[in-house]
Every structure is written in structure tokens, then in C-alpha cells.
Amino acid sequence: MTPVKNEPVLSIKDVSVFYGIIQGLHNVSFDVQKGEIVTLVGANGAGKSTTLRAISGLVKPKTGQINFKGENIVGVPAHDIVRKGLCQAPEGRGIFLNLSVAENMDLGAWAAPDKGAYQANMDKGFQLFPRLKERRKQLAGTLSGGEQQMLAIARALMSQPEVLLLDEPSLGLAPQIIEKIFEIITDINKSGVTILLVEQNALQALQIAHYGIVFETGMIKTHGKASELLRSDEIRKAYLGD
């Protein structure tokens, strides 16, 4: 659907997902170019998270193809998809509350292709999130919501992903913290990680993204450069609360 510049790192083609008899996604197709931040925005139940879950292998699409670096990954078990370089920070953070911050990060490195880079990755994570370093021995469950989200992102980075899938990183956080998280997402992207960002907070997501895809009732309503979407009156009215 996007004009083909070069081979996209992630390409979703005609993907449909069913939950029982209910169709959650209707023939969704889009491409993610290497090095970009692509954001999926839309209301509750529009199919954003389902798309992400289909990509990371947590749900299996009924039809369609998901190509990651030219290889169809539909049907590959979720834990093997991580090894290919596609890592998700799951919705609701999904951190291990009864383990320490450092242990959480260790688990993130479980599927890292290069075990030798463990310490370097750990340092990089702590550099991005100095607060986590202070609290590395603390139980993750004692962190604040914002810190838990930081941990979820830092942990996902431990597996050295080429593409990072972020599911609602702003969920339930204070505006200041959200801003900080979004800044860090931009930094991560600048360091060369392609990011696919699912967000309800469309305005902020589109401000940091290169490309935006607007979902509605399991279908793609519209898509385009993030800056253009932000200017479009129709989009502003429907999704950005103007």
C-alpha cells in the first residue's frame, strides 16, 4: 500500500484474524520501512492490538501473510519470532512483578542472538533509563507505572530486536511520563531500531511517527505520512479530539 521505495522490513498482506466466529481484522495490509516509526492509531477495539498480536505470533491469522525480512512468519511460534529479531513489549507491560529489575532484563536477553553483547545491552538499557539502574535489585512490582513501562521497553531491547513492537506504552501513565517515554522511543528509533507503535493517544503518537495507519472496526480507514495525517481535517475531527 505504501509506495515501494525499497524492500520493507515488515510487510503485512491481507491479514484476517478471527476470535471464534467474530472477525477481529479484515484483510489488513501495510508495510513498515526499515528505520521508521510506524504508528497504528484508532479507537478501542479497532484491531490495533490484534494486528500486533498477529505479527508477534500470539494469535494466528486465518488468512494472509506477514513477511519479516522477506520470510513469511505466519505459523512460526511466538517464541521463535523473537529470535528472528522481532520483539514485542506486551500490552499492560507484562513485566514479571515478583522478579527483580535485573532479572527481568536477564529474561529479555533469553532470546538474544548474540549472548556476548549481554553486558553491552544491559548498559545501553540502563543508559536509556537511569532510574532502572538505581533500582536494579528492587522487585519490579514495587516500581511505579512509568518505571514499569520503562522496564518493559528496556527488557524488550535486551533481545536486540530489529523491529520493536510497542503496545500502548502510554496506557495509564501521567502526561509528563508519557512525554518522557515518547522521547525515549524516538531515541531508540534513532539508534536504528524500527518501531511499530500501537497507541490510543493518536496525537502524540503521530507527532513522533514517520507513518501513520488509522484503524476502524478491524479495517484500515486511512494511512499516510504522519505529518499529513496530523494536518488532515477529517482525521483531526475524528481521532484527535479537535
Binding site: S56, L58, A78, H79, D80, V82, R83, C87, Q88, A89, P90, G94, I95, F96, L97, N98, L99, E103, L107, G108, W110, A111, R155, A156, S159
Partner: peptide, 15 residues
């Protein structure tokens, strides 16, 4: 332990 804590998150970590 990660399986005990959160199976989906564990899967997302490649476990």
C-alpha cells in the same frame, strides 16, 4: 519463574 509470573510476557521474551 517467568512462566509462573506471566506466560504471555514470557512468550514475548522468546521463552
Amino acid at each position: 519463574l517467568s512462566i509462573r509470573e506471566d506466560e504471555i510476557a514470557a512468550t514475548a521474551m522468546g521463552v
